[in-house]
């Protein structure tokens, strides 16, 4: 199973407005059934979700897992084959939910097909490896003025800083009624802040899936790590993800619901768009600060006019795009496909 589902769901009221939103509700039910060990319920919820949003690769993959877990081998293999032929892999050889398929000839054939379709590309060099297991990093930010690098832990909410000499230390911790997962980060040199998303998430210590949502954006002094700003979303919001500071100074936040802290304001409010992007992850602006880009799991990369809130999906983007990092001085997007993989 790929575990993206529960963070990116929308409020139930939206479910009456759009099948994608309704599908997300069923995905959330599926995630709960999975956690409860109710694989029949997990499978039923995903069948409904896939009917409502048939383009979702993640739902298709999770349903393949559901079929494998409930003994429906042929149906599981059929779904996996469609994904592999679309060059989408969620790690089928490593997923314990698919163990029941391993001894079938057809699964081995699919693995061979998958391996033949993957051509590695490598242009990167390792900058740093941290031996400690279980930090579960997500966001990264760099202060170009001091050449310091920050990254956060989804496990315990700590934010770490690596100085220009490569020395790592704890910088701050994201908390509100207990620790939160530190997710998206960005440096705001104009205000001398490090912004971090904090959200309750399943990878945290002491995560309570039944508790109301706890998600916000936190501004820490860029030198001392002292908390300077804290803006929490309504408890109905099941998760926030990433943050960007627009040239105007507005702070935009992605997640189950887009939010904004307007420059000069001291509150975070939902940022209304038409139509709704049904959850978002990566977020950035164009250099002029007129367009906000968000990676929306269900619809791809959305370009949102900041003044009006109107958005369109970028043409020629892949529907299974995952995280989007940032945009430089030119019109360039950096896009990541994550461990969660494509889909929702």
């Amino acid at each position: 199973m790929t575990l993206a589902a529960c963070l990116m769901t929308v409020e139930p009221a939206l479910a009456q407005q759009h099948p994608v939103a309704e599908a997300q509700i069923h995905q959330r039910d599926a995630a709960q059934s999975y956690r409860d060990g109710d694989f029949e319920g997990f499978t039923r919820s995903l069948e409904t979700a896939l009917e409502l949003n048939p383009a979702s690769f993640a739902t298709r993959y999770n349903l393949a897992c559901g079929y494998a877990l409930t003994g429906r081998t042929t149906e599981s293999l059929d779904l996996l084959e469609k994904l592999i032929r679309a060059k989408v892999d969620f790690g089928i050889t490593r997923d314990p939910d698919l163990t029941s398929l391993h001894d079938t000839d057809r699964f081995r054939e699919l693995v061979t097909l998958l391996e033949s379709s993957i051509v590695p590309v490598s242009n990167s060099s390792a900058r740093m490896t941290i031996d400690q297991l279980g930090l579960i990093p997500e966001g990264i930010a760099i202060d170009e003025e001091t050449n310091r690098m920050f990254f956060g832990s989804m496990r315990d909410g700590n934010i770490f800083v690596v100085d220009s000499q490569g020395m790592m230390s704890k910088f701050a911790v994201v908390r509100h009624d207990g620790k939160l997962a530190a997710i998206g980060l960005t440096v705001d040199n104009a205000r001398h802040l490090l912004w971090s998303i904090g959200t309750a998430f399943f990878q945290m210590e002491d995560f309570d899936a039944e508790a109301p949502g706890r998600a916000g954006v936190f501004g820490f002094d860029l030198t001392t790590g002292e908390l300077k700003h804290e803006y929490m979303a309504d408890s109905s919001v099941q998760g926030l993800n990433d943050v960007v500071v627009a040239p105007s100074g507005d702070v935009f936040v992605s997640g189950a619901v887009l939010h904004v802290v307007r420059a000069g304001s001291d509150e975070m409010v939902p940022f209304t768009t038409t139509p709704d992007p049904f959850g978002s992850n990566g977020i950035t602006t164009d250099p002029a600060g007129k367009t906000l880009f968000v990676s929306s799991y269900p619809v791809g990369i959305a370009a949102i006019d900041i003044a009006s809130g109107a958005f369109s999906t970028l043409r020629r983007t892949y529907r299974f795009t995952g995280l989007m990092a940032c945009i430089g001085t030119k019109a360039i997007l950096l896009v990541f496909r994550t461990a969660f993989g494509p889909g929702d």
């Binding site: 051509v119 590309v121 966001g139 170009e144 690098m149 990566g282 990092a325 461990a339």
Partner: peptide, 16 residues
């Protein structure tokens, strides 16, 4: 830029 590198499952990045 990078694909199918077994050394890392990336999440996000920053441009400098």
């Amino acid at each position: 830029i990078e694909f199918a590198n077994d050394a890392i499952t990336p999440t996000t990045g920053a441009i400098v």
